[in-house]
Amino acid sequence: MLRIHFSELDLARTRLAASSDPLWEIAGSLHRFQSRKGRWAYAGWFRSARLQLHRRGLERAVRNVLLPLYPRATYFPDFLTPVGTDGSIEAGAELILATPGRRIRHEMALLDRAVGAPAWVGQLADLGTRKEFVRLLHDYHEAVVAPYRDHVRARVDAERAARCRALLDGGVEGLLASLGQGSGMRWRPPVLEASYPEDRDLYLNGRGLTLVPSYFTWGQPVSFADPDLPPVLWYPLLDEHRSPQTDTDSSGRSLVALLGRTRAAALHAAVSGATTGELARAAGVSASSASRHATALRDAGLITSVREGAQVLHTLTPVGASVLRAAGQGD
C-alpha cells in the first residue's frame, strides 16, 4: 500500500492535471501488453494496436527495447515519465533528452536490481542513443496511442468534470474522498491510501500533489519511485473503460435520432457537465426518459458518462462539441 501524507499546505497545493500525460499513456499502454488483467476493457485497442505495430514494422523494437524498459513491475525508470510535459509528447521528449547521464545510469541500475535489464540499457546515458530511443517513442505513440487521442481526451474530460464537482461540493478533501470510487484509493484524513505493489509512505512536505487521470492505467495508481521528485499520482479513470465505437453505420443512425428537440436540449445541457436529473429538467422529460436519451447520445459518440457516487455525470465528447459548434454556425 502507498500512503500519501498531507498537511494543510499540501491540500492547498494539490491540483488535478488538465489533460492526460502522453509519456505516461505510452508507459500504461506498454503495461497493457504485459498483463491480461483488464484486457476486456481494451479489447478493441489491443487488436488495433497489434495490427498497427505489425504494419509499421515496430514489433521487434517494442519487444526488444520498450518492454524491457517499462516492465509491469514494482519499478521502472522515473526519467521515462518526466514532470512538465503539459500534455505534449514533444515537451516530454525534450525532457528525456535533457536527463543527466548520471541519473540514467543510476535508474538503470535500479531497474536491473528490480527485474533484471539487458546490458544495452546503459547506452541510454549517451545522448545519441537517447535520440534514437525518443524517435522510437514517437513512432510507437503515433501507431497505437495517437489514433485514440480524441477518445482518451473525452474520457479524461469527463473524469475532470466529475472530480471538479467533488471539489466544488467538498473542497480538496472532497475531491480526494471522491477518488475512492473504484480506483484502489481511500481518503483517510490526512492520508490518501492507494493500492500499490509495495508498502511505502510518501510525505508531501508542503509540495502538494498533482493528480493525473490516465486512460491506460488499470487497477491501481502509480507514483514516482524517487520520493524527492515532484509528487505525482497517475490514477485509473474511475468508471468502466470502453473502447471507442467503430460501427459507423450504428453511429450514423443514432445521429439522425438527435434531430429531435429533446435530445438537442440534452446535448446543450451537457456542455458544462450535467447529471441525468439535470438533463431531464433541461429537456422537460422524466429521469427515465432522460437516461434513454443519454444512452442514444452516448452511443452516437456525442457525450461520455462517468458515475459519481449515486449519480451519473454526462459531458460532451469532442465530436459532440463539434456538432454544437456546427449547429451554431448554421443558425
Results as ranks from 00 to 15, higher is better:
residue 315 T to A: 10
residue 217 T to P: 06
residue 55 R to I: 01
residue 34 Q to G: 06
residue 261 R to W: 00
residue 113 R to L: 15
residue 129 T to P: 02
residue 285 V to T: 04
residue 264 A to Y: 11
residue 9 L to S: 15
residue 126 D to S: 05
residue 192 L to F: 05
residue 131 K to M: 02
residue 105 R to M: 07
residue 43 A to R: 15
residue 233 L to D: 05
residue 262 T to N: 03
residue 195 S to N: 13
residue 201 D to E: 12
residue 228 D to C: 04
residue 27 A to G: 10
residue 236 P to M: 13
residue 98 A to V: 04
residue 304 T to R: 09
residue 320 G to S: 07
residue 321 A to N: 12
residue 27 A to D: 02
residue 240 E to Y: 15
residue 230 P to C: 04
residue 225 A to I: 01
residue 311 Q to F: 12
residue 109 A to F: 11
residue 274 A to D: 07
residue 192 L to I: 13
residue 284 G to I: 00
residue 2 L to G: 01
residue 218 W to S: 01
residue 30 L to V: 06
residue 181 Q to P: 11
residue 252 G to A: 07
residue 147 P to D: 13
residue 232 V to G: 01
residue 180 G to I: 08
residue 27 A to C: 07
residue 139 D to P: 04
residue 146 A to N: 10
residue 297 L to Y: 02
residue 197 P to Y: 09
residue 31 H to Q: 12
residue 136 L to P: 00
residue 16 L to C: 08
residue 104 I to Y: 00
residue 196 Y to E: 01
residue 116 G to I: 13
residue 112 D to Y: 04
residue 12 A to H: 12
residue 95 L to G: 02
residue 112 D to M: 04
residue 315 T to P: 11
residue 179 L to F: 15
residue 233 L to R: 01
residue 24 W to Y: 14
residue 182 G to K: 10
residue 31 H to R: 12
residue 221 P to V: 05
residue 113 R to T: 15
residue 288 S to H: 08
residue 89 I to D: 02
residue 192 L to N: 06
residue 59 E to W: 02
residue 286 S to K: 03
residue 266 A to I: 00
residue 118 P to N: 03
residue 279 L to W: 05
residue 198 E to M: 12
residue 46 F to L: 13
residue 172 V to M: 14
residue 317 T to P: 01
residue 130 R to K: 08
residue 67 L to C: 06
residue 135 R to D: 04
residue 187 W to K: 10
residue 329 Q to K: 13
residue 167 L to R: 12
residue 277 G to E: 08
residue 110 L to Y: 03
residue 315 T to C: 12
residue 292 R to Q: 10
residue 260 G to D: 00
residue 220 Q to V: 14
residue 236 P to C: 11
residue 313 L to T: 04
residue 247 D to W: 13
residue 314 H to S: 07
residue 44 G to C: 13
residue 37 K to R: 15
residue 214 S to V: 08
residue 68 P to K: 01
residue 200 R to A: 11
residue 122 G to E: 05
residue 61 A to Y: 00
residue 26 I to R: 04
residue 216 F to L: 12
residue 192 L to D: 09
residue 235 Y to W: 14
residue 255 L to T: 12
residue 42 Y to D: 08
residue 24 W to D: 09
residue 65 V to M: 02
residue 248 T to S: 15
residue 303 I to L: 06
residue 324 L to W: 01
residue 117 A to L: 04
